[in-house]
Design a protein around this nucleic acid. Sequence first.
DNA 1: CCGCTGTTCTCAACGATTGTCAACAACGTG
DNA 2: CACGTTGTTGACAATCGTTGAGAACAGCGG
Lengths: 162, 162
Amino acid sequence: MVDSVKSPDELTDIFRARGLKVTPQRQLIFRVLHDELRHATAEAVHARASRDMPTMSLRTVYQTLNDLAAMGEIVQLDLGTGSSRFDTNLDAHQHLVCAECGSVRDIVVDSADIELAEATLEGFAVSSTDIVFRGRCASCAAGARSDVPSTPPLSEETATHA
Amino acid sequence: MVDSVKSPDELTDIFRARGLKVTPQRQLIFRVLHDELRHATAEAVHARASRDMPTMSLRTVYQTLNDLAAMGEIVQLDLGTGSSRFDTNLDAHQHLVCAECGSVRDIVVDSADIELAEATLEGFAVSSTDIVFRGRCASCAAGARSDVPSTPPLSEETATHA
DNA sequence: CCGCTGTTCTCAACGATTGTCAACAACGTG
DNA sequence: CACGTTGTTGACAATCGTTGAGAACAGCGG
Ligand SMILES: [Mn+2]
Ligand SMILES: [Mn+2]
Ligand SMILES: [Zn+2]
Ligand SMILES: [Zn+2]
C-alpha cells in the first residue's frame, strides 16, 4: 500500500547493478533508512549510524543520501527548517511541519483539489506540487508555550510520534 | 485590490513610529522594494541599491529586510532556491517556480480547495499553507533545453515578466 | 591473493546569513 | 543650529549546512 524506501537487500542489488560498490557504510545507512528514520536530516542519519559505526563520516552519509536521492530511492525535501530532510516515503504526499518542535508528519492532499486554472498558468508546466502546512503539532500545543520555536531545528520526526 | 508593500513614505512613518531611524539606506531599500523588485533575494536588493549608493553593505540590506519582514511589511519566502526571497505581495498566494531559470510567479489558489480532513490533522493546528508549484516556465519551454537547470539560481523574478 | 576502481575519510572551501563592534549619523533637545 | 544620545552602518569574522579535493583504502572480478 505504501511505496516506501526499498529494503537494504534490494538497495544492495540496485547499487551492484549500477556498478556501485556495497560497503558496510552504505549497508548501515540502508538499514537506518529502512528501519528507523522517516524524515531524517543527514546529520540525524549520521548520528544514528555512528552509534553502530563510530568511524562513519558525515561526508559519506551525504554522499550516500545524495546517491539514493538521485536514483529516486528516497526524496530530498526542503521544508524550510534549515537543512534538507530525506524522505523514505515515496508516495505523493505533503507535510505538516511544526513551527515549534520542527516535527514532520506526512499528509495526503487530494491533488485533484488543487486544480489550477489553465489560463492562470500561462504556459507554465507544473511538474511537482510541494505543499507544506506549517503550524503547531498536538504535542506542542499540549506542553505549550506560545512564543518562539523553543526547540531548535531537530534531527528527525521528533518525539511526537509515540 | 492588491495588498502590496507600502510606499516609502508610509514605511518611513512606520519606522519612525517604532523609534527606528530612517536612514538614506533604508529609504533607498524602501524605494527599491516598492518600485522594482518583487521576489528579490537580499543579494538582488543589494545589487540594485548599490547602483544608487555604492557604499551600501549587504549586511544593511539583510538587516532592513529582516526588520520589514518582522513587521509584516514584506514576506520572507523559502522557495528552495538556495536563498530567501522577500515578497512584496502581501496577499495570500502561492508561487510558480521555474526549475530551469528560477523565475518566480504569483498564483492564487483558492484555499477552500485545500481542505484537510480534520481527522487527519490529529490536533495539528495549521497556521499557514505554503504551496510551491515547481516546473518550467513558458519562456524556458520556448528556448528550451530539457536537461539541467542551466541558469544558476537567479536574483529575481527573472526576465520572463516582459 | 592481485589489482583496478570506486569509496571513505579528513580537511578545507563554499554560499547564505548573522554576530561583533567601533565609527557614525538621525533626530529630539536646548 | 550645535549637541549628545541612541540606534545604525559597514567591515570582518564566524556560523551552518553542504560540497570539493586528494590520499589512503576496500569491494569485487580475475
Ligand atoms: Mn514525507
Ligand atoms: Mn509572491
Ligand atoms: Zn511540535
Ligand atoms: Zn524559466
